[in-house]
């Protein structure tokens, strides 16, 4: 009970911090970093909702990011939208991401593990090639420029910031709802043993595809937002192979398959990357840092920060409870109390 109270308090505090952040830190360089961080909080949470829960590691989510960006760009320029109107396109971008995810998923989800990863990469490159070559639609290598935005200079970043915050909070909320739902249970069963899950009546294709489609939506939305905020999209930034590497690294660092893990990972990695990109004129150093960080995570924290920390806290709590003179066999609690613990673990 105390744990859930603490958790609720922590979430509320984080949310409050998110809301007041741009009012406290008004430096546009800082809020700009914060916007990209929120974009990655959303993307990593959404990615984890599929890949973390189901165990199918996708390296093709940049397809949704790029498609959302191009959809938003093309629609904005064609319809001559300006200012805040563009934000109204973001749900449409999410819808387009979901629509693209259906055939994508139907193809890629027929295979598992390594083959699945390779197929997602292949489909990703098909989309990148299309962006390069469908010049009348995408502008080819020169890309699509966003129109100049006439927000007040002092608070220019704020609309972008709050749009990113809304998408990020929604993505985390969906991740949390799925984690505790029957749907999430089915996904985790697929991760543990897909064939066994089928033998217990789990319609695996439907479940996997559903998660894939849901995870595409926030990614496509932040893609659109990213285009509008950055002001430009071209095939190499829209369909960026590093996007999936970054998102996967965030989830791995924080804790694959947990709700908080990808959030924590994004909050650590994205500001760090922004900082290094600002510091080092040749922005390629962060690529080496990515590689090094990936190695360190896999070697030292293969399960990520959150699960490892949770385990340590659990051990510490158990030890303290025993120290308090509680029954040494408290783990073998009465049957009625056991589901509570199951809930706590979930």
């Amino acid at each position: 009970m105390i744990a859930s109270g603490l958790r609720f308090g922590g979430v509320a505090a984080l949310l409050a911090l998110g809301i007041v952040f741009p009012l406290v830190f008004t430096n546009p360089a800082v809020t700009s970093d914060a916007i990209y961080t929120l974009i990655f909080v959303a993307a990593a949470s959404a990615w984890n909702t599929f890949s973390g829960y189901s165990g199918y590691i996708s390296l093709g989510h940049a397809v949704f990011f790029g498609s959302g960006a191009y959809l938003t760009g093309i629609a904005t320029l064609d319809w001559g939208l300006t200012g805040s109107q563009v934000f109204l396109l973001l749900p449409l971008a999410g819808l387009v991401g979901a629509i693209i995810a259906v055939p994508f998923g139907l193809i890629a989800l027929r295979v598992r593990r390594h083959t699945f990863v390779v197929i997602t990469i292949a489909i990703f490159f098909i989309f990148q090639l299309m962006a390069y070559n469908l010049q009348s639609l995408t502008g080819g290598t020169s890309g699509l420029l966003a129109p100049t935005v006439n927000f007040a200079a002092a608070t220019y970043n704020n609309p972008f910031y709050y749009a990113a915050l809304v998408i990020a909070v929604a993505a985390v909320a969906v991740s949390w709802l799925i984690r505790r739902s029957r749907f999430g249970l089915q996904l985790r069963a697929i991760r543990d043993d897909e064939d066994r899950a089928r033998g217990l009546g789990v319609r695996t294709m439907r479940v996997k595809l559903g998660a894939f489609v849901i995870s595409a939506v926030p990614v496509a939305m932040v893609g659109g937002l990213s285009w509008y905020f950055t002001g430009l999209i071209d095939p190499s930034s829209g369909f960026d192979p590093l996007f999936d590497v970054a998102v996967a690294l965030m989830a791995f660092l924080g804790g694959l398959g947990t709700v908080a893990g990808p959030v924590l990972g994004a909050l650590i990695i994205e500001p760090a990357q922004q900082y290094f990109q600002g510091q080092v004129s040749a922005g390629y150093l962060f690529l080496m840092l990515y590689g090094a960080l990936f190695l360190v995570v896999i070697l030292v924290l293969p399960r990520g920060v959150i699960p490892t920390a949770a385990e340590q806290i659990g051990k510490w709590r158990d030890k303290r409870r025993e120290g308090d003179g509680g029954l040494a066999g408290h783990r073998l609690a009465a049957a009625g109390a056991a589901p509570d613990r199951a809930k706590e673990l979930a």
Partner: peptide
């Protein structure tokens, strides 16, 4: 069995196919 899920969650998996809820969450 499903190793990274709790024993109780293992039990719930087999029961889910009968739950005809329209709400996936």
């Amino acid at each position: 069995i499903f190793p990274t899920m709790t024993v109780f969650e293992n039990m719930l998996i087999a029961g889910q196919h009968k739950e005809r809820s329209w709400n996936p969450l």
